[in-house]
Computed example of a mutant assay.
Amino acid sequence: MSSFNGFNENVIAEFRANAGKVGGPFEGAELLLLTTTGARSGTPHTVPLGYLRDGGTPLVVASAAGADRHPAWYHNLLARPLVRVETGTEEYEAVALPAAGARRDELFAQVVRAEPGYGEYQERTARVIPVVALQRTHEAPAPEEEGGIAGKLLSVHGWLRVQLAHVRELAADGAREAGARGDGVASIGLQLRQHCLAFCHALEFHHRSEDAGLFPYLEQQHPHMREFFRRLDAEHRVIARLQEELVRALGAREGFSERVERLSRELEGHLDREEAQLLPVLRALGA
């Protein structure tokens, strides 16, 4: 295992030093670097992977050379779907979305047509080899391209609103399908699960960052706003509880749509109140 890790580290170093170009067994191959967060450790792990594209979206294949177990990076992205992608020219955040059912079969056939070796890997194992789309996260621009800390806050809030809207849309689609079937139980597909987890992890990180850094600093500069920051802290705790309930509902399936709607109402109100009070202060700070 240590020799394999050492090989990967050398490939990663060469990739980053040469704008994505590497030699050896990967010479001429389309490679990207995928950084996941350890499902148990919480630490970042980077691996070099070959990839293809479905339109403009990179696809990676959890083949593990036909082994009977999924690679560690695949388990990581199931637990924490927000990943970092590096190509030869850019680096960006993405949501990792494993394809399911007929869509997976369609994409895998597309992969095998381009790279027949993946078909040989599938023949070696009874497991269904996953195909994962790396969907670039939506960067919601701040109004009028506002800069500084105010612009960053608006950009993060915009991204959270877009992701939550997408989760609500996917949940509504599942509820409509359940109604059409007549069983009343909405299906939690991989797309909904991954987007929901990505949104929840990003929101949790954002609120922790505010609580540990931005809010104490602003309160020190503006002590008259102390009570406002106490209210924001209380709202963060309410939203955190609703997030936990939402994630638990991914396994229970029942009541998921209702929990999405409740979290949406709480979060939208919270973001609106935060922006109304903080943006003038942040704009005064400038860059």
Rank of each mutant, 00 (worst) to 15 (best):
M1W: 13
S3I: 08
E14D: 12
F15P: 00
F15I: 03
A19N: 13
A19W: 05
K21Y: 03
G23W: 06
G24N: 03
P25S: 11
E27R: 15
G28C: 09
L31C: 08
T35G: 07
D54S: 14
G55W: 10
G56V: 05
G56C: 06
T57F: 04
V60I: 12
V61C: 11
D68P: 12
L77I: 04
L77P: 06
P81T: 02
V83P: 00
R84E: 13
T89N: 12
E90H: 06
E90Y: 05
A94H: 03
A96F: 07
A96Q: 12
P98Q: 01
P98E: 12
A99P: 05
A100N: 13
A100K: 14
R104T: 06
L107P: 05
L107D: 06
F108N: 04
Q110I: 08
V112K: 12
R113T: 13
G119D: 09
I129V: 08
I129A: 05
V132H: 06
V132E: 01
E139V: 15
A142G: 04
P143W: 03
E146M: 11
E146P: 10
I149C: 05
A150E: 06
G151D: 04
V156K: 08
L160T: 09
V162Q: 07
V167D: 00
A171H: 07
A171P: 03
A171W: 05
G174K: 00
G174Y: 03
A175P: 01
R176V: 11
R181N: 10
G182T: 05
D183T: 02
A186C: 06
S187I: 02
Q194Y: 01
L197D: 02
A202Q: 05
H207L: 09
E210D: 08
P216W: 01
L218I: 00
E219D: 07
E219H: 05
Q220V: 04
F228D: 14
F229H: 02
R231W: 15
E235N: 15
I239V: 14
L246C: 04
A249I: 02
A249V: 02
L250F: 07
G251D: 09
R253E: 12
F256M: 03
S257M: 13
R259M: 01
V260A: 09
L267K: 11
E268R: 11
R273Q: 15
P280C: 02
R283W: 03
L285N: 01
G286W: 12
G286H: 01
